Computed example of a mutant assay.
Amino acid sequence: MDRLQFEVPVRIAPAPGLPVEEIYGVEQALDILQDWPVRRRGPLYQKAFNACFGATVDVVKTEEACRAFMAFCRASGLMARDMMTPSRRSSEARPLQA
């Protein structure tokens, strides 16, 4: 497994009517973040961007970057409704709470 690949892909719905996309790793997350409108960037965006960039240079763990990206997606309304999140206690996935 690539060191920058997420344990569980992050499922996003970029816009109403568009198909759900799966983000498999840090590079794809950075692509989404770099394309995000400047006027909509805030603290969660910056945290996600910094974590994902940090993962590319081995300063941040990939799963920490994934959690930061997921928090950004959840807060910005990008997260797909059917997204499963990894449980902290085991490798089992659990549904995202709406």
Rank of each mutant, 00 (worst) to 15 (best):
R39W: 01
P19G: 02
F69M: 13
A71E: 13
S87Q: 14
F53W: 12
T56L: 12
F72N: 07
R74V: 07
M84D: 13
A80Y: 13
G42E: 14
D31N: 05
E63F: 03
C73Y: 01
M84R: 15
D82W: 02
T56V: 04
G77N: 08
L30G: 00
M84H: 12
M83K: 14
M79W: 02
R11Y: 03
R11G: 01
R88C: 07
V20M: 05
L96S: 13
I32G: 00
F69W: 05
T85L: 15
A13Q: 14
D35Y: 02
T85F: 09
A15S: 10
S91K: 14
I12H: 09
R88N: 11
A65F: 12
A13S: 12
D31I: 01
S76T: 11
A15Y: 03
P95S: 15
P37C: 04
L96Y: 09
T62V: 15
A93V: 10
V20A: 11
V57N: 11
F69R: 06
A48G: 03
Y24E: 11
S76H: 08
V20F: 03
I23K: 01
L30F: 00
V26F: 03
G54M: 10
R88L: 14
A48L: 05
L33G: 09
Q97R: 13
V10C: 06
E7A: 13
E64Q: 14
A51N: 05
D82M: 04
A29Q: 02
P37H: 02
L44G: 07
E21R: 08
R39D: 08
N50R: 07
D31E: 12
V8C: 02
V8A: 04
G54L: 12
E22R: 07
W36M: 02
L30R: 00
A65H: 08
L18Q: 14
L30S: 00
Q97D: 11
D35V: 00
F53T: 12
E21G: 00
M70E: 15
S76I: 01
A98K: 06
A48M: 05
R40E: 10
F72C: 09
Q97M: 10
E22W: 00
C73N: 04
R81I: 05
I23C: 02
F53A: 12
V38L: 10
G77E: 10
Y24M: 06
Q46C: 07
R94L: 15
A65N: 13
I23N: 01
C52L: 08
V57P: 03
V38S: 08
V38G: 00
E63A: 07
S87I: 04
T56H: 03
D31M: 03
A71T: 10
M84W: 10
L96H: 08
A13N: 09
A98E: 12
Y24A: 11
L4P: 01
N50F: 01
D58G: 03
E27T: 03
Q34F: 06
D58E: 14
V26M: 06
P95C: 14
G54E: 10
A15P: 00
R94I: 15
S91Q: 14
E92K: 13
Q5V: 12
A71F: 02
M70C: 15
I12A: 10
A71N: 13
A29C: 06
F6C: 04
R11W: 05
S76Q: 15
T62L: 13
M70W: 12
V57D: 11
V26L: 07
P86H: 06
Q5N: 06
P9L: 09
P43V: 05
R11I: 03
P37Y: 01
L96M: 12
T85G: 08
M84A: 14
R39S: 06
L96Q: 11
